[in-house]
Each structure stands twice: as structure tokens, then as C-alpha cells.
């Protein structure tokens, strides 16, 4: 069970099972047999494709980064244009949050190289980030449900 969770986590983060920050808990690290993932390996297949697309194996080239820069600029433009669409109303907020989250993840993962680096950086950074977000949400909730004493 623990191994399955670890495998999924590793694949999601894009790390192979035989490297980086890892406490060895078996005498030999055997490679994963072919079809040990759920749904007969489709998860692994799509993960592999994703990893290849995002250059998991090596460093990005300047051209790669330039493309990412264009993507970021495009998202910013979309945000700007959507801002003026009145008919969206309240839907604006989740859309903006999603778009910004995309920009955030792209900068963190690629520009800051978190995608390619040791998992410890991811843990250490997202501990702080997630905590900040959760606390902000709780604080807003507390103020939102505050009763008005008349």
C-alpha cells in the first residue's frame, strides 16, 4: 500500500523510483514490473508522455524557455481580455484564479526548475505556500461568517 502510494506520488512529481531523495527500504531496488499500476498501465503511459513533453530528462534549452515565456504572455493577455467581459459576473473569480494558478505553476515548475530538481525543494516550498493559502482561506471564512451584533 505504501509502495503503491509512493509510486503514484513519484510518477506525479515526475521522479523515477531510482534516484534523488529516497530512503532505501529494500536491499535491492527492483524495477517496477510492467503492469503494476492501476488501469493496466495507462496512468504510467500518460505520465511518461507528460514527462517527455515537459523535458523531464534534461534541462530545457533557451528555445524551450522562450516558448514558455510566450505561453505566459498569452495567458496574461487572456486574463486582461476576459477582465472586460461583463457577462461573466461572479464566474470571473474562479476563471482568474485558475489562469493565475497556471502561470504560477509554470513559473515555479520550469523557471525555478522545480520540475527537474530534487523532491525536497518541492516539499519545502509547498509546505509554506499551501499553509499560506489555507490560512488565508480560513481567515476569510472567519470574517465571512462573523455574526453582526446589533
Amino acid at each position: 500500500m505504501k509502495k503503491l502510494f509512493r509510486n503514484i506520488l513519484n510518477q506525479f512529481l515526475g521522479h523515477t523510483t531510482d534516484g534523488y531523495f529516497r530512503v532505501p527500504d529494500t536491499a535491492q531496488d527492483l524495477p517496477n514490473p510492467k503492469n503494476d499500476t492501476p488501469w493496466a498501465g495507462t496512468l504510467k503511459l500518460s505520465m511518461d508522455k507528460f514527462n517527455k513533453l515537459t523535458r523531464k530528462d534534461g534541462h530545457g534549452s533557451p528555445g524551450f524557455y522562450a516558448i514558455i515565456g510566450i505561453v505566459l504572455a498569452a495567458i496574461t493577455l487572456v486574463e486582461f481580455l476576459i477582465f472586460y467581459v461583463e457577462s461573466l459576473g461572479v464566474l470571473l473569480i474562479p476563471i482568474m484564479l485558475v489562469l493565475s494558478l497556471m502561470k504560477f505553476v509554470i513559473v515555479v515548475a520550469f523557471f525555478m526548475h522545480l520540475r527537474f530538481d530534487n523532491r525536497v525543494f518541492t516539499i519545502v516550498f509547498f509546505a509554506g505556500f499551501v499553509l499560506a493559502v489555507v490560512i488565508a482561506i480560513i481567515l476569510l471564512l472567519v470574517f465571512a461568517i462573523k455574526p453582526v451584533f446589533s
Partner: peptide, 18 residues
């Protein structure tokens, strides 16, 4: 420990839900 801070503020008037 991050999710308990308002127990110092029970008498401030946060309301029953909080």
C-alpha cells in the same frame, strides 16, 4: 497547531460557527 489560533479569541465575538 496552525489551525487552533482563535481559541485565544473565544470571547471576542467570532460567532458560534468559528
Amino acid at each position: 497547531g496552525w489551525f487552533v489560533w482563535s481559541h485565544h479569541m473565544f470571547t471576542v465575538g467570532l460567532g458560534p460557527a468559528a
